[in-house]
Write a protein that binds this DNA or RNA. Structure first.
Lengths: 255, 255
DNA sequence: CCGTAAGGGTTACACCGTAAGTCACATGCG
DNA sequence: CGCATGTGACTTACGGTGTAACCCTTACGG
């Protein structure tokens, strides 16, 4: 019994409702254009890139896809799983972008350089999404269900093993490399407006803009503020990466 | 038209309704024990430490404090502000724990060691909360409203300035130090059961535990899994920190 | 004794994730 | 051809969330 609610629904109803009983007979065979998991995940990534993670809801994502929220549940088991898939998708983007994950060919140093820059490029391409990636790392796959973005981990470990790293050196290098990327890119990305705050997207515009010289009890901070805000992090990334590679070289030698 | 919904509200109504008018006359002066912002924030920190960030809701937090959710809004302007306050509180805990933030006395190297270990101790003390801290760094205080955990930043910058670092070296050191801590501690903490990021799942216990030898298409990962899961990260922290200090020494010299 | 304001409770609303049921159509089989 | 079956999307419904707006009780200063 349809109960005819006061129908305040003002969203655009796509199609196929009011006249379902009429002849219609107009649709070519597959008018349904079934959505698939990839379309959903891609839409989610796009939404996060544009509006940020907090605004992403199942209903809203459904709206983007011209579909009711519940339809998504046929392809993703829930919001959490969707976010996992988003993380995976972003990480696998490296694989598509170019051969970042290919076995080392010019020695492990260049290999790690490629890897690092690949990840950095991905992070900067999705500043709003990267904190999400960072906050759910490969999910300790060696315990529990597994399945996060293991292709990356596998490529790293395998690549180093094939370059003369023994097991312990490989593991140490993995940890050093990972934490380096995590720290650097998180910092870089949040400086670039990658926020995690829930729904401030709309506008926070000007309030209390008369902070001309409001009392800041932190003199050094306020003096160095401009310098801190500046963005030569690309250079710093390069330098830190070089140091990291030196350290990894020591690990390899010590093995 | 209000339509008089079927009013099925069956929640337990607590107290203080039927007999409010009676004499009572028993309460000593301040029976209300007014809650204040600190009590709220502390309760929030405690809740996150115990149950994780995702489960924290205003109503639940109110319940912990024996208060209705809406009463919290008199002290914190909303959930987001509350989380900001939690981050601040955790960061300021360093200040209380001991004199981590005191000006350098044994040279800047020992100062930075103290700082690093102070932060690490805080991170390990609140593994469930640290990802939250990491995901909202000092909020680029030099732009916009400011006010995150600037005491820490100020201490760092001031400490280094007083130890012969010029401005650019100080800023570079700050960035290197911060990203180092971010990366290392995030990794360490999430390995220790730190919860996932911003606003996520409540609880998903064991499902599909029969992963006896499910097909893992990642041979190296599964072989090195045990080693990756092991936890000698304290040692690694120490070693990486030492290398970092060397790098910072170079920055100081180059200035 | 009466403002008056603060501390807290109560109601209401829009939105969220999602379990469960339904309906339209495509495709198989007899 | 008719009918069973399955699939993909829509609909309804429920409990939970953050929070705006209002109400009530108490404390206290005049």
């Amino acid at each position: 019994m349809p109960t005819e609610r006061d129908d305040a629904v003002d969203v655009a109803r796509p199609v196929a409702d009011a006249d379902a009983t009429v002849v219609d007979g107009r649709q070519p065979p597959s008018a349904r254009v079934p959505l698939d998991r990839n379309r959903i995940v891609d839409a989610a990534v796009g939404y996060i890139d544009e509006f940020g993670l907090p605004g992403l809801s199942m209903r809203r994502l459904g709206g983007v896809l011209g579909v009711e929220a519940m339809s998504l549940y046929r392809y993703v088991s829930g919001r959490e799983a969707l976010l996992d898939a988003v993380v995976d998708s972003i990480m696998d983007q490296m694989h598509r972008d170019e051969d970042v994950l290919a076995r080392p060919q010019d020695g492990w140093q260049d290999y790690l350089q490629r890897l690092a820059h690949g990840v950095r490029r991905v992070a900067l391409a999705h500043p709003k999404a990267f904190p999400l990636v960072a906050s759910r790392p490969p999910e300790a796959p060696w315990l529990r269900p597994p399945l996060r973005s293991l292709a990356w981990v596998e490529a790293f470990l395998d690549g180093l093993r094939s370059e003369g790293f023994n097991d312990t050196a490989t593991v140490s290098a993995y940890r050093a490399f990972t934490s380096f990327l995590l720290g650097h890119l998180l910092l870089e990305v949040t400086a670039h407006g990658g926020d995690v705050g829930p729904l401030d997207v709309l506008e926070d515009s000007q309030n209390s803009q008369d902070l001309g010289k409001t009392l800041t009890p932190y003199p050094v901070v306020s003096r160095l503020g401009k310098a801190l805000a500046e963005d030569h992090s690309a250079v710093e990334f390069e330098e830190s990466l070089e140091d990291l590679l030196n350290r990894i070289a020591l690990m390899r030698a010590e093995s």
